[in-house]
């Protein structure tokens, strides 16, 4: 069996296929330990006002820039304009030219507004950003995002933070067949098997935050996810047996005791 390659997009290579977030941790120290346990090399961050109260700790003090690639996101943006403005500010900070593009269409489901997402993707690609758009599991949309220049497509498995896992594996499989850029499942992963399932489908990576940060023991869950992503990828490459309705005996008939 060929040894697995690396996650590649926009000319960058990453050994880990797990991308993690920074939100919802009890504190920065546990976040740092969870990141470590996850083996992730890419970490998503939000773009927000500086806290003028200087007694509060700074997130960036807990993310080693030598170890991790920062992936700023446009969380909280509901229009293309807001997302574009946020992306420009994120790039101006000067620590990353990647952008995880989120344009939210609905407050309760946090599903993407695909229309504005596509608009913003086109503008930001033209501005030279490496755009990773968070979208739904619509293969037609995924193809449009790829054609618009997205460096990867990131279909949701289930609503953000819902922990429902991969709700529509069939659509994800179709997306994998229809696009050439990496497909990274983003949102909805609740436990290790969800991540493994995403990788077994053939996805190039998995992005999660709540699944780890919200777990009772985030550091242990981060480690579980690390194994799950590796196991799922290996299983995919190993070529699973087909699913059959009836049994196929494993032992030969000859030599049976009479």
């Amino acid at each position: 069996m060929e040894k697995d390659g690396v996650l590649t997009f926009a000319g960058r290579e990453f050994r880990s296929r797990l991308i993690v977030g920074t939100g919802k941790y009890p504190d920065y120290r546990s976040m740092q330990r969870a990141h470590e346990a996850s083996g992730a090399q890419i970490v998503t961050v939000a773009v927000r006002r500086v806290n003028l109260d200087r007694t509060r700790e700074s997130l960036l003090d807990y993310i080693d820039s030598a170890k991790y690639t920062l992936l700023p996101n446009t969380a909280g943006c509901y229009t293309a304009d807001e997302a574009i403005r946020t992306a420009l500010l994120a790039r101006e900070v000067g620590l990353s030219d990647l952008i995880k593009l989120e344009v939210i269409g609905d407050q309760r489901t946090l599903f993407p507004d695909n229309e504005d997402l596509l608009k913003a993707t086109k503008v930001l690609v033209k501005e030279g950003f490496v755009v990773l758009p968070y979208t739904n599991d619509d293969p037609v949309m995924a193809k449009k995002l790829e054609e618009a220049g997205a460096a990867a497509v990131m279909p949701l498995g289930a609503p953000i933070g819902s922990g429902l896992g991969i709700r529509n594996p069939y659509n994800i499989k179709i997306i994998l067949e229809m696009v050439r850029v990496p497909v990274i499942v983003d949102a909805g992963v609740g436990t290790a098997s969800d991540a493994a399932i995403a990788m077994e489908l053939g996805c190039d990576g998995v992005l999660m935050n709540t699944g780890i940060a919200g777990a009772k023991d985030p550091v242990a869950m981060a480690e579980a996810m690390r194994h799950a992503v590796i196991a799922g990828r290996l299983a995919y490459l190993a070529g699973r047996i087909p699913k059959k309705l009836y049994a196929t005996a494993s032992s030969p008939i000859e030599g049976m005791i009479e």
Partner: peptide, 12 residues
């Protein structure tokens, strides 16, 4: 004036 940086968080 807006002074912006990277903070913890995302939509999820």
């Amino acid at each position: 004036l807006e002074i912006i940086t990277f903070m913890a968080g995302g939509s999820g």
